[in-house]
């Protein structure tokens, strides 16, 4: 091969990347560069490096918004993981094929569902004159005005579970299918109780998937806005609600402050999604 030929080859090898150019340009224009603009502006003031914007973001109002968002996300992720796994276990162990497929399909259908119609449905069911509220009242359990309000963090917790549960079910089913029947039989034959089997064999095997599921569900709830906005308006102080208010200029026109809040929430989200990816790789390796 002459030098010219080799050069031609190399330049050709480089040219095939041109086919991916439109996609990379799109990613740069609408993902990378806008987000990097946020990073830069949150750390600078008139060109000089500063942490000033983050200091201003640490007011009691915004700290509370982070506390509320983290509590809501952690609670719905935890409940989603526990009950989602329970339902998924019931799905994979049922012998009725129709039930198994129908409920998996239901999870598939509902996991992409959220936002305004979901929030509204929960007002119809659990609002101050909702049907479940009325039924509970009849049996002597008064939700309103003190026990429960749907237009609050409590209501959001219940509404978020409507998309968290199906997501967890879909995430954990493949791992549950990876639990071999022989493992259980071997454990029982060696004298383990059912509880010991779950604690010593099944749980360690499922751990990466459960933790990964928790992180993804956490991110799912942390970034949510439409459901919270429809259900509670500005009443519940969440990070996304605060950022949206700053974007709309409702509170005050202070873009750098919004950028700093956005950076903090991106930090939380990045940890969750990166952790999920890492654990997902481990879970896949474990299942092999």
């Amino acid at each position: 091969m002459t030098r010219g030929e080799r050069n031609a080859r190399q330049s050709k090898a480089w040219l095939v990347w041109l086919g991916l150019l439109p996609f990379f340009l799109f990613g740069l224009a609408f993902e990378i560069i806008p987000v990097l603009t946020l990073v830069r502006s949150s750390f600078t003031d008139k060109g000089a490096l500063t942490l000033n914007h983050f200091e201003r973001a640490l007011t009691p109002l915004f700290i509370e918004s982070f506390r509320n968002s983290i509590q809501l996300s952690a609670a719905t992720a935890f409940l989603g993981v526990v009950f989602g796994t329970l339902v998924a276990h019931a799905i994979v162990t049922t012998r009725n094929r129709f039930v198994r497929e129908a409920i998996t399909a239901l999870a598939d259908v509902t996991t992409n569902f959220g936002g305004a119609p979901l929030a509204f449905a929960f007002i119809v069911v659990l609002g101050s004159t909702g049907v479940v509220t009325l039924i509970l009242k009849m049996v002597g359990l008064n939700l309103y005005p003190t026990t429960f309000r749907v237009y609050s963090i409590q209501g959001l917790t219940v509404a978020y579970l409507y998309f968290q549960l199906p997501l967890m079910i879909l995430l954990i089913i493949p791992s549950l299918l990876g639990l071999r029947r022989e493992w259980r039989e071997a454990a029982i034959n060696l004298g383990a109780s059912s509880f010991q089997y779950w604690l010593r064999v099944a749980l360690p095997f499922l751990a990466p998937s459960l933790l990964g599921g928790f992180l993804l569900l956490f991110a799912n709830a942390f970034g949510a806005y439409a459901t919270a906005w429809t259900l509670t308006g500005p009443d519940v102080n969440l990070v996304t609600v605060q950022i949206a208010a700053l974007v709309r200029g409702e509170v005050q026109l202070d873009p750098a402050l919004a950028d700093a809040l956005a950076m903090l929430s991106l930090l939380v989200m990045t940890i969750c999604v990166a952790g999920y990816q890492w654990l997902g790789g481990r879970a896949r390796k474990g299942a092999r």
Partner: peptide
């Protein structure tokens, strides 16, 4: 270009990590 796949996949994972409100803010700001 199999070596381009990780970059593509990176760009398709990013949206999971950006809340809608933050994406809107970033686009408006830029």
């Amino acid at each position: 270009v199999p070596r381009g796949k990780p970059f593509i996949e990176f760009l398709t994972i990013i949206p999971f990590g950006i809340p809608g409100v933050v994406l809107a803010l970033a686009l408006i700001r830029f």
